[in-house]
Amino acid sequence: MATPREIAMAAEKRDIRNRWLLSAPALIIIFLAAIGPLFVMLLYSFMAKGDYGDVKFGQFSLDGWFNVFLTRDIFDDTLTFADAHLSILWRSISLSLITTVTTLFFGFPTAYFIATRPQNQRDTWLFVVTIPFWTNILIRTFAMQEVLRNEGIINSVLRAMHLIDSPIQIMFTNWAVLFGMVYVYLPLMVLPLYASMEKIDFRLVEAGYDLYATRLQVLRRIIIPLVKPGIIAGSILVFIPSLGAYVTPRVLGGGKSMMLGNLIELQFGQGRDWPLGAALSITLMVVVTLALLVYVRNASKGGGGNG
């Protein structure tokens, strides 16, 4: 005879087993689709490069990682810092940071505007914000090109107003990439901001005014601390894809304003240096992870009252 205790324990065991069985499909997908490829990347980064792309299997080599940071001169074999890679890394990080700050700057008032509309109008506004998602990013980026190029909308308007004589070169500069990325990622900032603003009890704002806080103080001391989760989420959602952005810098930045994504693509394509590409990918991932850790830690520390 089983004691009640044994029966209970058996039931619990069954329960745990069922839970594992039920989550198995999800776990398999996570392994195959997310962790598996990363593992492949890691392996590739430690192999010798093949002559026409690919890698030489089983041939261990540190060249991939070596080339991330250093360049070997073709003629005299002297080692120098890989300036090109570092400047691309730096451009990627700074452009992504500026993109994040800019989308926050424009996204915050937008989200506030939507959150303070009457309930029945908010869905319409959200719908408007998400419309760009309906079109393929490539097409949207080419449309942006139409706006920015020398004969494009901006230059035509400025010329018609006689503000300039010759067109301003916007295309193929960092500005063009920034314009494009802000345009593409703005909804990713607005949506999480809206989600946390919508939850704000606007009586708290009134309570702030009631207690002698000016508009600016209400914003700083009440609204911003309360939407902090949205600010964090939005910044992460914009920063990460910006750092790995590929289409926008390619179309709007050309060869001059390359970003990490393009550099990586180059290694797997014309560059035929898969180990370097893999090592760069993992570098990008490490940079993102570190940036997130620092950011989230600081952001949540500042959350205690004095905002």
Partner: peptide, 24 residues
């Protein structure tokens, strides 16, 4: 404007600031 009126309100829902302590 409300922030210049020497009038204070105890709100029906209290409207205490959730991100601050009692003292704050």
């Amino acid at each position: 404007p409300p922030f210049q009126r020497p009038v204070n309100t105890v709100f029906q829902s209290y409207a205490l600031f959730p991100h601050m302590t009692v003292g704050q």
